[in-house]
Amino acid sequence: MERLKGTSIYDYLVILISVAIAAAMTIVFFRMRTSGAEYAGVAVNGEMQKELLLSKDYLLELDSMNIEVKNGRIRITSSECPRKICVESGWISSPGQSLICIPNRTVVFIRGHEKDKIYDAVTY
């Protein structure tokens, strides 16, 4: 390749390194922003009890309820609360979704990036 007038091999090396750094930072930046639902959190009385990987099937037994992770989803399978609203809510799997048991003061929620959430809150 014919060199540009006034440039040396080292100039091209610096240009190459600069572009590589810019490209690498771009890739890292967009990868950070595209993380989906990987974890679910379980909190009781506002305190985190457990963080569960949604990719791994799991059965969690708490004092007052049982929670199941299966096929990338999570649900409350049984609860000692009187009305079982949390159980009847079924499976959740998307960032921003949550299962709430008010009598047991327990929240099961899906972690995820803001851009992956379908909604910011639910009216019910």
Binding site: S8, Y10, D11
Partner: peptide, 16 residues
Amino acid sequence: MMQLHINVRKCVAAAC
């Protein structure tokens, strides 16, 4: 010895 020219500095600044 490595010699840097003004247009290379501009490339680095543009990348940043």
